[in-house]
């Protein structure tokens, strides 16, 4: 079963393509989540709240393109692992 940590790592990889690696690392850091070189999160206890915060910052800085671009894999992982998603990802 996937966790919110897995989900946020999946989104990070996708955002490397959409908003770029540097911008993705910067946004994750701004919400207190640091990404390692292999695009894993340093922190283990990642929550739904972190996902909500990430979506808010992405939407504010880049608009819906950055959200829609990661929506399909996020939906799939959430569905398989019964993870709650913020409205913007549903």
């Amino acid at each position: 079963m996937a966790t919110y940590k897995d989900l946020l790592e999946l989104i990070a990889k996708r955002e490397f393509g959409i908003i770029g690696e540097r911008n993705t690392r910067s946004i994750y850091s701004s919400i207190g989540l640091d990404l390692n070189g292999d695009v894993t999160l340093e922190k283990n206890d990642v929550s739904f709240g972190d996902l909500e915060k990430l979506m808010d910052v992405l939407k504010e800085k880049y608009g819906m393109v950055a959200i829609i671009g990661c929506k399909i894999p996020a939906l799939r992982m959430a569905k398989q692992s019964e993870l709650q998603l913020p409205d913007v990802l549903r």
Binding site: R14, G17, I18, G69, C70, I72
Partner: peptide
């Protein structure tokens, strides 16, 4: 990173 960018659009 282009494959991820491509999937983001085409999915």
């Amino acid at each position: 990173h282009y494959i991820e960018a491509m999937k983001a659009f085409l999915e």
